[in-house]
Computed example of a mutant assay.
Amino acid sequence: MTDLYTFAILVFTAFFTIINPLGTMPIFMTMTSTLSKKRRKQTAKKATIVAFFTILAFAFSGQILFNFFGISVNSFRIVGGVIFFMMGWDMLQARLGSLKHTKDEGQIDAYVDDISITPLAIPMICGPGAITNAIILMEDSQNLTQKSVLIGVIAFVLLLTYLILVGASTITDKLGETGNKVMMRLMGLIVMVIAVEFFFSGLKPIILDIMHS
Results as ranks from 00 to 15, higher is better:
190 I>F: 13
160 L>W: 06
162 Y>H: 15
195 A>D: 02
43 T>Q: 08
142 Q>P: 00
146 Q>L: 13
43 T>S: 12
5 Y>F: 13
98 S>H: 12
71 I>N: 02
105 E>P: 10
18 I>E: 01
201 S>L: 03
120 L>R: 02
209 D>S: 15
48 T>S: 07
6 T>M: 10
106 G>W: 01
63 Q>M: 11
188 G>Q: 11
32 T>K: 09
202 G>N: 08
204 K>S: 12
107 Q>F: 14
38 K>C: 06
60 F>T: 06
92 L>A: 11
3 D>K: 10
145 T>G: 04
198 F>H: 04
159 L>S: 13
25 M>H: 11
60 F>M: 06
61 S>C: 13
51 A>K: 01
3 D>T: 12
94 A>G: 06
80 G>K: 01
52 F>L: 15
166 V>T: 06
91 M>K: 07
209 D>Q: 14
16 F>A: 05
197 E>C: 03
76 F>K: 01
39 R>D: 15
25 M>Y: 05
140 D>V: 11
213 S>H: 13
179 G>K: 12
149 V>H: 02
144 L>T: 08
212 H>A: 13
163 L>F: 11
44 A>P: 03
13 T>G: 15
70 G>S: 03
25 M>C: 10
85 F>V: 04
183 M>W: 09
57 A>T: 13
153 V>D: 00
120 L>G: 00
70 G>A: 07
178 T>H: 12
90 D>K: 14
51 A>E: 02
139 E>I: 05
1 M>V: 07
33 S>I: 07
179 G>Q: 08
9 I>K: 07
151 I>W: 02
192 M>W: 10
203 L>K: 07
49 I>P: 05
211 M>V: 15
186 L>Y: 11
49 I>R: 10
111 Y>V: 02
187 M>Q: 08
159 L>H: 08
46 K>I: 14
64 I>F: 15
32 T>D: 04
133 N>W: 07
4 L>E: 12
49 I>F: 14
170 T>D: 11
128 P>S: 13
138 M>R: 08
43 T>K: 03
145 T>N: 10
26 P>E: 10
72 S>A: 02
57 A>D: 04
86 M>K: 07
207 I>A: 10
127 G>M: 03
48 T>N: 10
176 G>R: 11
193 V>M: 12
144 L>W: 10
82 V>G: 01
198 F>N: 06
128 P>C: 09
5 Y>Q: 09
206 I>N: 05
81 G>K: 12
137 L>V: 09
188 G>W: 03
14 A>I: 13
119 P>K: 11
